[in-house]
């Protein structure tokens, strides 16, 4: 199964795929909590924001009036929890008329890199 792992960029860790917008349901928040837990337990953890998930990266977010934890504030703690590899799907940004100036974190990657990330992860958790 390891035969398609591609050398230096092989990730071989846990990939968390965030595909849903924040606040409408609990998925975004649960995904973030899972990422923080994976990171703090020392697992090699990557996060990919794709499809509706890219809305999670908009700032500023002020979720006080809807009584939810601020998703962007929580996400900004990822590096402290040793989750340093945060990726954002370029195509998903384009579809939503967003650019790097609109988002608060992550490295923007094209579809080929997204495919590589998926193919080289040992396990994928989708939120």
């Amino acid at each position: 199964m390891d035969k398609q792992l591609t050398g230096k960029s092989a990730n071989k860790g846990i990939l968390l795929v965030f595909r849903h917008a924040p606040y409408g349901n609990a998925l975004a928040r649960e995904g973030l909590e899972a990422a923080l837990a994976c990171g703090v337990m020392g697992a090699k953890t990557d996060v990919l924001y794709i499809n509706e998930g890219v809305w999670q990266l908009l700032e500023p977010q002020d979720s006080g009036a809807i009584d939810c934890k601020n998703q962007a504030s929580m996400a900004s703690a990822l590096a402290l929890y040793d989750v340093d590899d945060i990726w954002v799907d370029e195509n998903s940004l384009k579809q939503r008329n967003l650019s790097s100036a609109d988002i608060n974190a992550g490295k923007i990657i094209n579809t080929a890199r997204v495919q590589e990330l998926l193919a080289t992860s040992k396990s994928i958790l989708s939120f």
């Binding site: 199964m1 390891d2 398609q4 792992l5 990939l15 795929v17 595909r19 998926l118 193919a119 080289t120 992860s121 040992k122 396990s123 994928i124 989708s126």
Partner: peptide
């Protein structure tokens, strides 16, 4: 079992 990982789209 054959797959290196599974991605579920939902």
């Amino acid at each position: 079992a054959e797959a290196s990982a599974t991605q579920s789209w939902y």
